[in-house]
Simulated assay, not measured.
Amino acid sequence: MLYVVGIGPGGLDMMTYQARAAIEEADVIVGYKTYTHLVKALVGDKPVLKTGMCKEIERCQAALEMAQSGKTVALISSGDSGIYGMAGLILEMVTKHSWHVEVKVIPGMTASIAAGSVLGAPLMHDFCHISLSDLLTPWEVIEKRIIVAAEADFVTCFYNPRSRGREGHLKQAFELMSPYKDPQTPVGIVKEAGRRKEAKWITTFGDMDFELVDMRTLVIVGNQSTYVEQGLMVTPRGYQL
Rank of each mutant, 00 (worst) to 15 (best):
R162Q: 12
G168K: 15
C128T: 15
Y159D: 04
A121G: 09
P122H: 10
W99Q: 07
P107G: 09
K191M: 02
N160L: 07
K104N: 10
E143K: 15
M124A: 13
A199G: 02
E140Y: 02
W201V: 13
A152E: 04
F127C: 02
T156K: 04
A121F: 01
T204C: 06
G116C: 06
A150P: 01
E167F: 12
L123D: 03
P122D: 07
L132M: 09
E175G: 07
K191V: 01
R162L: 09
H125N: 13
S178C: 06
K144Y: 00
V155D: 03
R196A: 11
E151Y: 07
P107E: 11
P107H: 11
V141A: 12
I142M: 08
I130K: 09
V101A: 12
V187Q: 10
S178G: 06
E102W: 02
S131F: 04
E140V: 12
L135F: 10
T95H: 14
A152C: 11
D134G: 08
S98I: 00
Q184R: 14
Q184P: 00
I113Y: 08
V118Q: 13
F205T: 11
V103T: 11
V101M: 12
E102A: 13
H129V: 08
S98Y: 13
E192P: 00
F158P: 07
R164G: 15
F174G: 10
R164L: 13
V187S: 11
L135V: 12
E167G: 05
E175P: 00
V148E: 10
A150K: 05
G116M: 07
R166A: 08
K144R: 15
Q184E: 15
H125W: 04
A149E: 05
G206C: 11
M177C: 08
L176S: 07
H169E: 04
K96Y: 04
L136D: 01
T137L: 08
G116V: 06
I106L: 12
S112K: 01
Q184T: 14
R195T: 04
F158A: 12
S98W: 06
A149P: 03
K181R: 15
A199V: 01
R196C: 00
R145D: 02
M109V: 15
H125Y: 09
I202D: 05
R145H: 09
K191R: 15
K200P: 00
D182L: 06
L123E: 04
G206R: 10
W139H: 07
I189A: 08
A150R: 03
K104I: 05
K104C: 03
R145V: 02
E102I: 01
H125V: 00
A199S: 14
V105H: 05
V148N: 04
A114M: 09
E192D: 14
G165C: 01
K144T: 05
D126V: 00
A121H: 03
V187H: 10
I106V: 15
G165E: 09
I142K: 11
A114R: 06
R145I: 01
D182S: 14
V141P: 00
T203Y: 06
S117A: 14
Y159S: 05
F174P: 06
K144I: 00
E143T: 09
